[in-house]
Write a protein that binds this DNA or RNA. Structure first.
Lengths: 175, 175
DNA sequence: GCAAATTAATGATTTATTCAAG
DNA sequence: CTTGAATAAATCATTAATTTGC
């Protein structure tokens, strides 16, 4: 139907930069292009470091935050699959693309408890085809808890030295 | 399956809360108590600020991160509903969906890949329990993007001054 | 009694669903 | 409608309990 409004962003200048109200992120054409490009290259679930780097560079095109990048990949990945069964038409039956949805190989290696390695590379996707080297990431931070690869992010920073805080009785604070 | 070198870990200690390898967070009794107390008081989805404060104070009892608090509430909330197991009165509610042994069946999937079906009944989310005033939170900073009230956390910090970074051609970097 | 093997809990990740701004 | 944002459900993975053979 009428999508006249969409043309607004096509102009190339519609980044709702901060200033008055924090609506929601409105990606510029360049930002979308880069993101889409990455997605089509196989990137599906960027790590925190990757997200930060992407966001950092994309900020050159307009206001953007890391969470926007994160959400973008989340949504794009989910909707790529969903749209495949809707946009194409209901009569489509041979919708095969390349990824079977029900592969879910269970590598239950419970027995191999050999935890000799400490590197917690959780990059084990369903298919190792996505493990492309996006950027020269700073390898293992070892002690750092960079294992976070999704929505527990803020969590990565100590932010407070409460380790020596007295046992505040929270129980009374929130009741 | 014979290799179970769990006990013969380098370091030997049963990483309880001493902070040895730190595979995953292992809450102390005090931490669990406080969290449970809050939960029972009605707190279900603490905001970022609340999580940080809780985490800060709970760190007095042992190592803890904000993400642990977040996950704890997530899991506790989800499992509280799906547990409903015989706690003390088996004749309390007609809810016994024989789920007790169901978990066991899922676990023994080690070799047989017998992926049992999970009941996917969906329940309308009840937005009864709104955020009770845990602490004197600071409202939205309007100008700042601190309005985040959930799980996109890392995102809350600028972390980088990439705003002046040149338009690096990411497209070439990751291909 | 202990240590390996198994089971039960639960912390952490991923995926699907929903809501609302534009 | 499209899509960014947020939450819940499902799933995976590691640890503690518990069982079992010696």
């Amino acid at each position: 139907m009428g999508e006249g409004e969409r043309a607004a962003e096509s102009g190339g200048f519609s980044a709702t930069r901060a200033g008055a109200k924090c609506g929601r992120w409105n990606p510029t054409a360049e930002q979308v292009k880069v993101l889409t490009d990455m997605f089509r290259s196989g990137l599906r679930t960027p790590s925190t470091d990757q997200i930060q780097m992407i966001s950092a560079h994309l900020s050159a095109f307009g206001k953007i935050e890391s969470k926007n990048v994160f959400y973008w990949f989340q949504n794009h990945k989910a909707r790529e699959r969903h749209h495949k069964k809707r946009r194409r038409g209901p009569r489509d039956e041979e919708d095969d693309d390349d990824d079977g949805d029900h592969q879910k190989a269970r590598n239950r290696c419970l027995a191999s408890c050999t935890k000799g390695k400490q590197d917690v590379f959780r990059q084990r996707q369903e298919r190792e085809t996505e493990t492309l080297e996006l950027f020269p990431l700073k390898s293992c931070s070892s002690d750092e808890e960079k294992v976070m690869s999704m929505r527990s992010e803020l969590w990565g920073r100590p932010f407070l030295d409460a380790a020596r805080d007295p046992p505040l009785d929270l129980r009374l604070s929130f009741i």
